[in-house]
Amino acid sequence: MRALLLGAWLRAGRGLPRAPGSGRRHREHRGHSGHSEHRPQAPLRQKVSVEVLQHLEHLALVDFRDAEGVERLQKAIQFADQLHEVNTDGVEPMDSVLEDRCLYLREDDVTEGNCTKELLENAREKVEEYFVAPPGNIPLPKLEEQETFLQGSQ
């Protein structure tokens, strides 16, 4: 059931950022649509708007900013939409196949850690014993720039 979330979320249009005074931006991104096979059972497919893209980028701190990225996202949604073909009427949602098992309780002992070196071996960048990440609180590129980019990439 979980894989439904992305598709459902996009369809419901939840959490879309409403940039103040950005009325002109409220148009859908054109292109990248209608090139997969028709699925009558699936609900109406929604194109990925610039706002949705920006919101996703914001949430995930990743960069979709090329045509390939947009297409990949669209396909992922279509893939997830297949789940709507399963009839779940009257079926109680299941959290996990483990939900009737006992939850094992561990004693409060220190048994792990002290492996800084091994951990940092996986890091692309590090400073001393720290992982290095891109600055998190810096605004992503402005929406206008993205629009320019997306239009240019069509």
């Binding site: 939850l103 409060d108 792990e112 002290n114 800084t116 001393e128 014993e129 720290y130």
Partner: peptide, 30 residues
């Protein structure tokens, strides 16, 4: 099972689970 301690050297109290490496699972502390 990694230690809880304030002001320890960076990333010294980190298990593979804490770093979210693939294949690790949570085990609840009683």
């Amino acid at each position: 099972g990694s230690q809880v301690q304030f002001a320890a050297p960076p990333n010294s109290l980190v298990s593979f689970f804490d770093a979210s490496l693939p294949g690790t699972l949570p085990v609840l502390n009683r």
